[in-house]
Design a protein around this nucleic acid. Sequence first.
DNA 1: CCAAAAGTGTTGAATTTACACCCATGA
DNA 2: TCATGGGTGTAAATTCAACACTTTTGG
Lengths: 242, 242
Amino acid sequence: MDDSRQAAVSLAVSTVIFALAQSGDSGDRGGSGDGGPSALRLPLVRRIREPHEGLWALPGGPIAQAESLAGAAGRNLQETTGLNPTYLEQLYAFGDVDRSPVERVVSIVYWALVRTEEAELATEGENVRWFAADDLPQLAFDHNAIVEYALWRLRTKLEYSRIAHAFLGDTFTLAELREVHEAVLGRPLDPANFRRQVESSKAIIATDERLTGGRHRPPRLYRYNTSVELTDNGPLARIERN
Amino acid sequence: MDDSRQAAVSLAVSTVIFALAQSGDSGDRGGSGDGGPSALRLPLVRRIREPHEGLWALPGGPIAQAESLAGAAGRNLQETTGLNPTYLEQLYAFGDVDRSPVERVVSIVYWALVRTEEAELATEGENVRWFAADDLPQLAFDHNAIVEYALWRLRTKLEYSRIAHAFLGDTFTLAELREVHEAVLGRPLDPANFRRQVESSKAIIATDERLTGGRHRPPRLYRYNTSVELTDNGPLARIERN
DNA sequence: CCAAAAGTGTTGAATTTACACCCATGA
DNA sequence: TCATGGGTGTAAATTCAACACTTTTGG
């Protein structure tokens, strides 16, 4: 926290952006019907200069003078995908001396969740592409390891907080919510027990509406309970939002 | 991760250092007997220039060109207290635009645990002093909030991993380990249930020795089981140690 | 023998898990 | 009416919490 000579080390922000995509989707409502199991996907950008020119990398860049760290993360998410995150959290600061071959870079990495429905509209192009999270090519710098860590955080956080709904729209069925959990955790969950757990957590509120058009008994739609803190980050929530 | 103009934002590393001190200690063995309950303490340094000259602050400073982030944290721990940490983990990167009144500073903050016995030898002086963690004066910058967050992390981490022994020596009794938990969590724990929990976790190994000299039945001494990962940081452990 | 901490046993409550079964709808 | 997912009930298994009780030492 001293002032003094800096310059030697440069600072950047990167973001790991997760969305859930149906394996063979077609734009209709996300989960309730079939259409193949969902899978985690994330957007990467192609490096257009050295080092690692041509390799895929996490979206990121330097932070502006008057911009918060989370703001920078949200901005480069917006710039590369055109989307707004429904969840954004700092992951870790990576600062190994040799993580970039040309200069000393410390990257403060965020991870974000975006809604499935919106992710389908996301920009894609020559230099931006979505990849399956569990089947990535070799990435630039230490980005493979960073994604692996982000995945681990997402999975563990899912178990003790209620962030899964960040993938969904305003209203959703319990089956849709359960499918998100199943996709992220990679294992099937008992529908009956899942229902009881999430209901007892008070994180969601039943609405009067039901989702019609399915082939069977129409399931009830639920809404998030915004009066409940969805993630437990302790005092950090207060600190960051002040 | 682009190269480019930086300079606008400077980077620093700070460390929240926790030790456990007997309320009225006298250098004899830490816990088993009485001597008052233990309390969390941490060292602060006095600012000797603006901004916030005269206020107490977390130890910290800029990172050297060829130094890892954790290395920088360990170094300034060593420089201010003369101690080596038994546990060191990244806490968070704080980067609010206005957290320093004079320039834009992003601080990557670590938190550390040091052994009780060693902490008693720690350097203290005009500009370095130890404070009770739950009764701090007004600190420089956003450091009060940072300490609050570090305390929360320590407490929650204690419940799902086995870091408490980082406060203790090579061997210790279950009562000593339990007293660490009680001091950090701030509530009494059932000795019988605590014993079973920690024994079933396989985190410690019974030795043949017992601690004699107490006034009652001599308790068995235990040792850490180094073959068990003490903290679950997921893939991060591998990433950082590579 | 007495006091007090070390260590063991037991019981009831709470939570988790597995799975049987009824309900409601479209076709 | 049938197939199927929505939704409820329930009993066994596991974990958790409280506390009685036995053991071992110093004095």
